[in-house]
Each structure stands twice: as structure tokens, then as C-alpha cells.
Simulated assay, not measured.
Amino acid sequence: KGRCRRLEGAPGRGTLEKEQPPIFGMIERGGQVVIRMLENVQQKTIRPLILAVIAPGTQVYTDEYDIYARLPEWGYGHKTVCHSLGEYARDEDGDGFHEVHVNTMEGFWSLLRSWLRPHRGISQEKLPLYLGFFQFTHNVRRRGRGLLQPMLSALLTRAV
């Protein structure tokens, strides 16, 4: 039997108007993450972010959500997994390594949700600050006191 969905919000994508702002994320496997709060989830909204962050010609892995359909037109390799069919990873070349997956980003979303959960009721105005801090801490890969030096360095280089 599936999970009970009575505590979840209304179906559909979030928007600023519904006070459920969409958060768009891109992560390099084993590398940096970029997350942004968006007004909506449309190709015209995500295209500038993708072009600014991902090098042309890069292989991009996504789920089958239709906003990613134009990635090949924009100059990217594109492979998908179909979650609705129960596909979460695929081995295309038979080497035993499932290279087509979005598990890296899914794992990041899980960490972000767990980190945001105690901060119940974050306003839309403050949410980008929380996202920026979480992105920073993920990218420097340090916790506790070890985070102080990279944070001071980033603040001082931006202030100059």
C-alpha cells in the first residue's frame, strides 16, 4: 500500500502566487550545487540559469518533466529517467554502473528538506537567503567551526 498523501499540499507545481515557490537545482556529480528560488517552472525561466551555470556540450541528466525538453536545442546532451514507470537509474552501456540517474540531486533535496524542516514558516522574502547559505555550506563541504574560515573569506572577498 502506498504512502498516505493526506498531509501533503495540493497537487501540481508550486508558484509564488500559491506561496509555494519552486526551487530549481543543478548539481555536478561529486561537485558544486546551484539552487535558486524561481517565480515559476517554465523553460523561459530556467534557460538563463542553465546557460549561466552549465557549459555547452555537457551531458545533463533529468527526470522526464517537459521543461527539460529543449536541452538538446540549447546545446546540451540530455538523458532522462522515467520515475512514473519506476525507473530510477539505468545502465546504458552494460558495464554494471548505472550512469543515467538523478539520484545526486534527489539526495541533495532530501538534505535540504531536513535542514529546512526546523525553520518552519520561512517567508518567501527570506527563503533565498536560507537557500544561499545551504548552497554555500554544501559547496565548501565543511561543518561547524570548519565553516568559519571559508565564510569569512567569501565575505571579505565580496566586500572588496
Rank of each mutant, 00 (worst) to 15 (best):
L49Q: 08
E39D: 15
L49S: 08
Y88T: 04
G121N: 14
I27A: 01
E99F: 09
T58A: 13
F134G: 00
H83A: 08
P21W: 03
E106L: 12
V102D: 02
L112D: 02
Q59D: 14
P128S: 10
L147M: 05
G86V: 01
V41F: 12
L131F: 01
E106W: 11
R47Q: 07
A52E: 11
W74Q: 05
M26S: 05
G57Q: 06
A89N: 11
A89C: 11
I27R: 00
L127S: 05
F24E: 01
P22A: 03
I23L: 08
V41W: 07
P22G: 04
I46P: 00
A52M: 11
F108I: 07
G132H: 01
Y88F: 08
E39S: 15
R47P: 01
E99D: 11
Q124E: 15
L111M: 14
N103P: 04
M37P: 03
E64P: 09
R120Y: 14
V34R: 04
L147V: 05
P22V: 03
D95G: 10
E19M: 15
H101S: 11
R117T: 12
I23D: 01
S84I: 09
E87M: 03
A52C: 12
W109D: 06
T80Y: 03
Y130V: 04
W74L: 05
R113D: 13
V100Q: 00
I67C: 03
K44C: 12
K44H: 14
C82T: 10
R90C: 08
H78N: 10
A52I: 09
M105K: 02
R113T: 13
R145P: 10
Y61D: 00
L112Q: 02
K44N: 13
E39L: 15
F24S: 02
F108G: 03
A55P: 11
E19F: 15
Y68K: 03
T62Y: 10
Y88H: 07
C82S: 10
R47G: 03
Y88A: 05
E99I: 09
S114Y: 07
T58M: 11
G132F: 01
M151R: 04
Q149F: 11
